[in-house]
């Protein structure tokens, strides 16, 4: 995810301090990975340097000065073109997992067990997301659904690989 573009987008509704931006980000997008303060301030410094935000005001406080940031016209254009640009679809192959399966076959270890334990781990996470989804609001449900569909695709790959393990073993050990 582009943190810079996301923070810019959050600024479109009005100027905010760095702390407010972090809080707004975490509430909407940071369920699993809240932003570090350092990351907010370094990103804002970069956006400032590139003319995408400006300092709207400074409030002196007990600690460091609190800058309030506002998005510039260039910033709005930047958000607009980022939103309009489709994300590159990535055929997602778990390369580590594939490597592990092939190595297990090459070294005579039980590759089927490896696939089964990965499958159990995937389903464990899918259960957790399903529980979170049933107790959550629509935003939560959509975020969980996205993760669930990806995990389901992985799980189908695990199933298919398990079903073709003998064939794969014959190929890699040839």
């Amino acid at each position: 995810m582009s943190i810079g573009h996301t923070l810019l987008g959050l600024l479109e509704s009005g100027p905010r301090h760095g702390y407010d931006l972090k809080r707004a980000f975490d509430e909407r997008f940071g369920h699993d990975r809240p932003l570090a303060y350092g990351q907010v301030y370094s990103t804002m410094a970069r956006l400032l340097k590139n003319g995408l935000v400006e300092v709207d005001g400074i409030e002196p406080g007990g600690g460091p000065e609190r800058k309030r940031y506002a998005i510039t016209d260039a910033g709005v254009t930047d958000v607009e073109s980022w939103l309009a640009q489709p994300e590159k679809p990535e055929p997602y192959l778990q390369t580590t997992l594939y490597t592990k399966v092939v190595l297990a076959l090459l070294t005579g270890r039980p590759a089927a067990d490896l696939l089964d334990s990965q499958r159990a781990e995937h389903l464990r996470l899918m259960r957790e997301l399903t529980r979170r989804k049933s107790g959550g609001d629509l935003a939560d449900q959509l975020i969980c659904d996205h993760a669930l569909f990806h995990l389901e695709a992985d799980l189908r790959w695990l199933e298919l690989t398990a079903a073709r393990l003998d064939q794969l073993a014959a190929e890699v050990t040839r």
Binding site: D113, D116, S117, R119, A120, E121, H122, L123, R124, M126, R127, L129, T130, L148, F149, L151, E152, L155, R156, A162
Partner: peptide, 26 residues
Amino acid sequence: EPRVAAYSDREIVVRDGKSRDMERAA
């Protein structure tokens, strides 16, 4: 369907008529 199975508490996989308790695979 894995997303349907995610409503379960645990999972058994049947392959070629043999069952495997996935709790033990984890």
